[in-house]
Design a protein around this nucleic acid. Structure first.
Lengths: 128, 128
DNA sequence: TCTATAGTTCATATATCCTGAACTACGGTA
DNA sequence: TACCGTAGTTCAGGATATATGAACTATAGA
């Protein structure tokens, strides 16, 4: 089992962050971590309505980790994952909050100012 | 020649935007468009020190266009590309500016407050 | 030691990306 | 009208990345 790779803050790139968060599964994992503060892999087995295989989930966590977005450390039998928000905020101020907020807007949780409520409801209801 | 696809503002997704801008070539194309206000494809043949084949460039423009980041319209023999900044700003406030700023930070143009100049210079010099 | 749980690694099928070659679209000239 | 040049697109292929089941590693507890 190879050691976990956590890039130093200076090796974290914008491209890496954007690519990692451009996948909906990874984005929701990251959003979940950001609001809960930390969680294990299995806590995310039920993302987006269907069950994601744990190997896939493991790869997603690896992608987040190697992009520098997440720090993972073994904690007994499980793996504790936490975001590296503060570090990234220092290097790229405002980037992560803007992305998280955009994801919320898209999910309909926080519509941009001026959006009529009906429009949001319609969006959440169907239209795919 | 199939008609150009421009998603309506409501069909633009965060994932699509992040994915489009996670490629360094596309990111620099977009940044160039954003600061110049508009340009043709060939204006970007010399991005990032080496010549990019025009087929590749065309695909990159298509990716930006279909992500909703850019509007392209034929203008005589050439294609005029402009960003859709204002629309996206309305839907996802702050997202694009944050990404562009992060790219600038990374390029060393606008270091985050407190960064010693030496560090930036060392970064630009080599280290790949 | 044996078993269960949590997660990783590997192999492979699938999808996406990059690029040269061929093509389309348009403007200008004769 | 035909022909040429420029700008950009599409296609086909190889290279690269992603998803996932099966097998594996690591740890805790009995």
């Amino acid at each position: 089992m190879r050691p976990l790779i956590h890039p130093s803050i200076d090796d974290i790139t914008v491209e890496g962050i954007l690519h990692a968060l451009s996948d909906p599964v990874r984005a929701s994992i990251y959003a979940g971590l950001a609001c809960r503060g930390g969680a294990t892999c299995t806590a995310f087995q039920q993302v987006s309505d269907r069950t994601i295989p744990k190997s896939t989930l493991s790869q997603h966590f690896r992608a987040l980790r190697e992009a520098g977005l997440v720090r993972s450390e073994r904690c007994g039998v499980e793996m504790r994952n936490t975001t590296r928000c503060e570090e990234i905020e220092q290097r790229f101020p405002g980037l992560i909050p803007a992305i998280l907020r955009a994801h919320q807007v898209q999910a309909g949780d926080t519509p941009p100012p001026g959006t009529p409520r009906r429009k949001v409801a319609a969006k959440k209801a169907g239209k795919r």
